[in-house]
Design a protein around this nucleic acid. Structure first.
Length: 814
RNA sequence: GCCGAAGUGGCGGAAUUGGUAGACGCAAGGGACUUAAAAUCCCUCGGUACCUAGUACCGUACCGGUUCAAGUCCGGUCUUCGGCACCA
């Protein structure tokens, strides 16, 4: 056994594990509930570039965890698959005319080979892709359930339209007013869209965040995204018309300061109330706004813009007439698309009032009864003034009373609104799940029968979306033209497809029962595994994917098809691996590291271990070529040491034995933390550095060490195990081996001798080795014997001695 | 602008959450082995100063505070990264 030949070793063990189905898992009821664990990675999009070194970071972390739990006697579900609908394949198809399914299949093959080359213990028998008809049949089926329950509806909504992609993009996919994919500023357009009513779940999506163990910053991001605000809706009659305007406000207490109303320019009532003389001005402004992208609407905002409709509203409490304006700082999608403007107490309203010379009435004072001069809006809480019988109340009391009054007279009520918007679910794209609906002129939207699923994509000539915003599918008349299943008349298939978030909304459920052709997953199998215990992936999915998946899960829960309120109990984020130049890896920067090269040159075990050694899982850290060499040297040292060491010793020397037990404790705890893998490896290194000084160690010690190492470096672990082990490989099918993970002995990690830091006035002057548990007097006495201590401490000048058992003694002297 | 996270040697990072700052690894320098190189092994390695076996002072972005004791807690400032953005 000479030299560490990683290529030979890694191929040998990967083959063994695969042939012996070591990673396949069954729903074995001999495992009690608490001994079952579901550990999941966010599945990859199989891009044409192949695996990135960022992928194995999270995958290695979950693989270590999975192996750790198996070695501790758990039944572990650890699956992988592919999120394979998506734009790159479609864009590539547009360019080359090659069908996306061909490139996707090729990419999946590459990804599979690369992932397998890293020795991850995935149960490949459960693998699938979101583009598999057997899978997306059920994605379509869940959509039909949403439709059936009224949570999927079609509406002409103001949507973002990307003139470059020639397709609609959801608000959630617009970054800085630009298309997330191509960077083109988006425009607003009205298109018929399928929309999912995620807002119906807003409150539960918010509240149930308390049930999960997720990083606090991710929870905060989701909370902000949902953006609950409590307030009131108030009804204003339009003067001289039979029309009402409902506004939403969080500050009902400022009602007497409302000096005008502002509507979103797109608000449907605008047309009905605008006076003849103001028509052209309003039309001009509406046009100006509609041509603005969100970017312009939100960033070119030094000056408030708007137009007067000519109409007036009646203040519900004092009966005064106040003018009605439109302005683009009011968004139709938020609240009621209309506000009462209180310039004295809202910054935006203040600016607008200044610009349009509108009255400003102060109705909140910082101190009881004391009006102040307003140089800017006073937005804090205080005491009401100038508010008729509601004056001289605290903001919260005033809010309460005004809402009560409005409720009584039928002009308003307490209300809650959310920033969260409904999810625009249709895409004018080819490479997505077809929406299984037939549009009949007579019968409306008619769902396909379950027996007609999956609805497959038709072959097309060209993948380009048509410029009018409709899907490439619209051109395939033979596919589009169908008879209505209800009335038998001519009808058309829906030609929009689903967004690629759809497939990732429920894939974790499918892994529990991936080959089921009767249900999307049986309740029995789900109950065995769901919810996911540990979910690891990047922070970029903080809001979109994680919120959508929670939404679908809650929906399926409500209709009795899953049994947990939340899909993912514990979430952990992995950081980004940066290039050697400390910049994000990208083709254009030329700083991309290809995992294949590292596997070839150093081996999968080295790559896995290096990525774990770089730092805590969640931080971003730069790649460093020469640091990999250090890990490789460590593994070589392990290899050569265990090949030559004698296993005849009865015991370890006491100090090494203590270190060994401490190592077991440290490695176990660090793995369970799903973060500190770097210090676990460091502990293994420290331990090895002591072991190599010994020519002979007990066989059990060698075994325990190799078991721990094997979670990080499974191939090398198995290889050395053939020498030090019990004649059978470490990783065999679950249930066929007793738990091998070592236990440490609590009594053996206690230090008999401890080192004190001796301080004088808080400055360390010396150290002292002394028996653990020595009392204050003893330690003080021994400390003062040291020259460098007595030098600073005259015994009669000691004012105080701070003593921390087994750690520190601090003499406070004059 | 708002929200969130983070700033520790030449580099990645460690520090039992208020108790010896710099574990472990990389890089660098010196030495051993060798005809030589690679590999391996040993030593040094935050800064400054000196009487250089040692000791003192400084040092965790910056300024201040609390404490016997601060990388860790508090207040302020700066910088970087991520997210959001006229949200009523």
């Amino acid at each position: 056994m000479e030299g560490y030949n990683h290529i030979e070793i890694e191929q040998k063990w990967q083959k063994y594990w695969e042939e012996n189905k070591c990673n396949e898992v069954k729903e074995d009821n001999s495992f009690p509930k608490e001994k079952r664990i579901y550990i999941l990675d966010m599945f990859p999009y199989p891009s044409g570039e192949g695996l990135h070194v960022g992928h194995p970071e999270g995958y290695t972390a979950t693989d270590i965890l999975s192996r750790y739990y198996r070695l501790n006697g758990y039944n572990v579900l650890h699956p992988i698959g592919f999120d394979s609908f998506g734009l790159p394949a479609e864009n590539y198809a547009i360019k080359t005319k090659i069908h996306p399914s061909i490139t996707t299949e090729k990419n999946i093959k590459t990804f599979t080979r690369q992932i397998k080359s890293l020795g991850f213990s995935y149960d490949w028998s459960r693998s699938f892709s979101t583009t598999d008809p057997d899978y997306f049949k059920w994605t379509q089926w869940i959509f039909l359930k949403l439709f059936e329950k009224g949570l999927a509806y079609k509406s002409k909504a103001p949507i973002n339209y990307c003139p470059s992609c020639k397709t609609g993009v959801a608000n959630e996919e617009v970054v800085d007013g630009k298309c997330e994919r191509c960077g083109t500023p988006v425009e607003r357009r009205l298109i018929d869209q399928w929309i999912l009513k995620i807002t119906a779940y807003a409150e539960r999506l918010l509240k149930d965040l308390d049930l999960v163990d997720w990083p606090e910053d991710i929870k905060i991001m989701q909370r902000n995204w949902i953006g609950k605000s409590e307030g009131a809706t108030i009804i204003f009659e339009v003067d001289g018309k039979d029309e009402q305007i409902e506004v939403f406000t969080t500050r009902a207490d400022t009602l007497f300061g409302a000096t005008y109303l502002v509507l979103a320019p797109e608000h449907p009532i605008v047309e009905r109330i605008t006076t003849e003389s103001q028509k052209s001005e309003v039309e001009r402004y509406k046009k100006e706004t509609s041509n603005k992208s969100d970017l312009e609407r939100t960033s070119l905002n030094k000056d408030k813009t708007g137009a007067f409709t000519g109409a007036y509203a009646i203040h519900p409490l004092n009966g005064k007439k106040i003018p009605i304006y439109i302005s683009d700082y009011i968004l139709l999608q938020y609240g009621t698309g209309a506000i009462m403007a209180v310039p004295a107490h809202d910054e935006r309203d203040f600016e607008f009032a200044k610009k349009f010379n509108l009255p400003i009435i102060q109705v909140v004072a910082p101190e009881l009864g004391k009006e102040i001069e307003l140089k800017e809006a006073f937005t804090q809480q205080g005491y009401s003034i100038n508010s008729a019988e509601f004056s001289n109340l605290t903001t919260s009391e005033c809010t309460k009373r005004i809402i009560e009054k409005l409720t009584k007279i039928g002009k308003g009520k307490a209300a809650v609104t959310y920033k969260l918007r409904d999810w625009i679910f249709s895409r004018q794209r080819y490479w997505g799940e077809p929406i299984p609906i037939i549009n009949c002129p007579k019968c409306g939207h008619v769902p396909l029968k379950e027996s007609e699923l999956p609805l497959l994509l038709p072959q097309v000539e060209s993948y380009e979306p048509s410029g009018d915003g409709s899907s490439p599918l619209a051109k395939v008349t033979s596919w589009v033209k169908v008879k209505c299943p209800i009335c038998g008349e001519d009808a058309e298939r829906e030609t929009n497809t689903m967004p690629n978030w759809a497939g990732s909304c429920w894939y974790y459920l499918r892994y529990t029962d991936p080959h089921n052709d009767k249900e999307f997953a049986s309740l029995e199998k789900q109950n065995y595994w769901i919810p996911v215990d540990i979910y690891v992936g990047g922070k970029e999915h903080a809001v979109l994917h994680l919120l959508y998946a929670r939404f679908w899960h809650k929906f399926l829960f409500d209709i009795g098809l899953v049994n947990s309120a939340e899909p993912f109990i514990k979430l952990r984020n992995q950081g980004i691996i940066l290039g050697e130049d400390n910049q994000k890896m990208s083709k254009s920067r030329g700083n991309v590291i290809n995992p294949d090269d590292i596997v070839k040159e150093y081996g999968a075990d080295t790559l896995r271990m290096y990525e774990m050694f770089m730092g805590p899982l969640e931080t971003s850290k730069p790649w460093n070529k020469s640091s990999i060499g250090g890990i490789r040297r460590f593994l070589e040292k392990v290899y050569s040491y265990f090949n030559k060491v004698s296993l005849d010793a009865q015991n370890l020397p006491p100090n090494v034995e203590k270190l060994f037990h401490k190592t077991i404790k440290k490695v176990s705890e660090d793995i369970e933390s799903i973060s500190a893998y770097n210090t676990a490896i460091s502990a293994l290194m420290i331990c090895l550095n002591e072991l190599v000084k010994l020519e002979s160690i007990p066989r059990k010690v060698a075994q325990d060490y190799i078991i721990m190492l094997s979670t990080f470096a499974p191939h090398l672990g198995e290889e050395i195990w053939t020498k030090v082990g019990d004649g059978r490989p470490i990783y065999l099918p679950i249930g066929t081996r007793n738990p091998l993970w070592p236990k440490y002995d609590k009594d053996k990690i206690i230090d008999e001798v401890v080192t004190y830091a001796i301080m004088v006035n808080g400055k360390k002057r010396a150290t002292l080795e002394i028996a653990a548990g020595s009392d204050k007097e003893q330690v003080a006495k021994e400390s003062l014997k040291q020259q460098n201590v007595s030098k600073y401490v005259a015994e009669d000048k000691i004012q105080n001695i701070i003593f921390v058992q087994d750690k520190i003694i601090n003499f406070i002297v004059k």
